[in-house]
C-alpha cells in the first residue's frame, strides 16, 4: 500500500526526467567549476610570481660555444650592484645549483644534473610588489653596464597569459550562469510536465480538500529528493574525470599549471549538487503554487 508521504505521485508516469537532467547539469557544472578553480589557482600562483620577483640571466657561454669563465663573475657582481641600488628592488641573489635544480624540475624532471648543462646563471630579484621598479630603467642600466645580461621578459608573456586566464575565468563564469539558467528553465519545464501529467491527481486531491501548502510542500520535497539523487550521481561521475585531468596536467605541465584543488575548493564543488537540488525545491514550490492558482 502507498505510504502516506507518496500517495500523490504516480511514479510510473512523472518526475522521470528531473534526476537525469539535474545529473547531467551537475556533471557539466562540476567539470566547469573545477576547471575554473584550477585556472584561478594557477593565475594566483603566476600573479604572485610576477608581483614578487623577476629574473636576470647571465650567460655562461658565448654565442660561439666557448665558456665565458671570469667574465661571468664580473657580470654577476655588476648586475647585483645595479639591481640592489634600483628603487623598488628588495634584494637580489644568485641561484645555486640546488635552487636551479628545483626551478628546472617541472621541465627537466627532478633528477636532472643542472651543473652539467650549459645553463645561464640566474639572479633572482625580489621586488616590492607595492612599489615595483621601472623595468625599462633597469633594462637600460643593465644594457649599458652588462651587455650580456638578459632581463627575463617572462613578465610580459605571463601577463598575457594572465589576461587570457582572466578572460577564461569570465567565460567560465558566463557559462556557469547559462548552465544555472538552463537548470532553472529545465526544472520549471520538468515540473510543469510532471504537473500536467499529474493534473488529474492534483485536481482530485484539491477537490478532496488538500491545502495548497500541503501539495506544494509534497511536490517540492519530492523534486528535491529526485534532483539531489540525480545531482549526486552527476557529481560522483565528474570526480574521476577531474582526478584524471589533474593527474594528466600534472604529468604534462608539472607545476606550471595548478590543477589540484584544496579541501575548501572540493567543499565548494560539493555545493553544486546541493544548490541544484535546492534550486529544484524552490522552482517546484513556485511552479506548483502558480499551477494551483488555476483551481478555485
Amino acid at each position: 500500500m502507498a505510504q502516506k508521504s507518496d500517495f500523490l505521485f504516480d511514479h510510473k508516469a512523472s518526475h522521470f526526467f528531473l534526476p537525469w537532467i539535474c545529473g547531467l547539469m551537475v556533471f557539466i557544472a562540476t567539470l566547469i567549476v573545477a576547471g575554473g578553480v584550477s585556472v584561478h589557482n594557477s593565475l594566483d600562483l603566476w600573479q604572485k610570481g610576477i608581483a614578487e620577483s623577476l629574473t636576470i640571466q647571465i650567460p655562461t657561454y658565448n654565442a660561439d660555444g666557448s665558456p665565458r669563465n671570469d667574465a661571468v663573475y664580473h657580470d654577476i657582481e655588476t648586475t647585483l650592484m645595479i639591481t640592489r641600488t634600483t628603487p623598488g628592488v628588495q634584494g637580489a641573489v644568485v641561484l645555486d645549483d640546488e635552487q636551479m635544480q628545483q626551478l628546472m624540475a617541472p621541465w627537466l624532471g627532478p633528477d636532472a644534473v643542472v651543473s652539467q648543462l650549459p645553463l645561464p646563471k640566474l639572479i633572482d630579484v625580489s621586488v616590492d610588489s607595492k612599489n615595483p621598479p621601472s623595468l625599462e630603467q633597469l633594462k637600460q642600466d643593465l644594457t649599458a653596464q652588462v651587455p650580456s645580461a638578459i632581463l627575463d621578459s617572462h613578465r610580459i608573456w605571463l601577463a598575457e597569459l594572465i589576461n587570457f586566464s582572466n578572460a577564461l575565468l569570465h567565460l567560465i563564469g558566463f557559462i556557469l550562469l547559462l548552465l544555472f539558467a538552463t537548470t532553472i528553465i529545465t526544472v520549471v519545464y520538468t515540473t510543469k510536465t510532471a504537473l500536467t501529467i499529474q493534473e488529474y491527481v492534483l485536481s482530485l486531491v484539491h477537490m478532496l480538500g488538500a491545502k495548497d501548502w500541503f501539495i506544494m510542500h509534497k511536490y517540492a520535497w519530492h523534486h528535491f529528493k529526485s534532483a539531489l539523487g540525480g545531482s549526486l550521481i552527476g557529481f560522483i561521475l565528474a570526480l574521476p574525470i577531474i582526478l584524471g585531468i589533474t593527474l594528466f596536467l600534472r604529468a604534462v605541465s608539472g607545476q606550471i599549471f595548478q590543477s589540484s584543488l584544496s579541501l575548501s575548493q572540493w567543499i565548494l564543488l560539493l555545493f553544486i549538487p546541493l544548490a541544484t537540488a535546492f534550486l529544484a525545491f524552490l522552482t517546484t514550490f513556485h511552479t506548483v503554487w502558480k499551477f494551483l492558482r488555476k483551481f478555485l
Binding site: 500500500m1 502507498a2 500517495f7 504516480d10 511514479h11 482530485l204 486531491v205 478532496l208 480538500g209 500541503f214
Partner: peptide, 20 residues
C-alpha cells in the same frame, strides 16, 4: 468515479482520511 489509477482500492478510499 475519478479514481487514481496508481493507487489500489484501499489507498483510493483512504485518500480523504490521509489528507485529513
Amino acid at each position: 468515479y475519478r479514481l487514481l489509477n496508481h493507487l489500489n482500492a484501499f489507498d483510493n478510499v483512504a485518500l480523504p482520511l490521509r489528507l485529513a
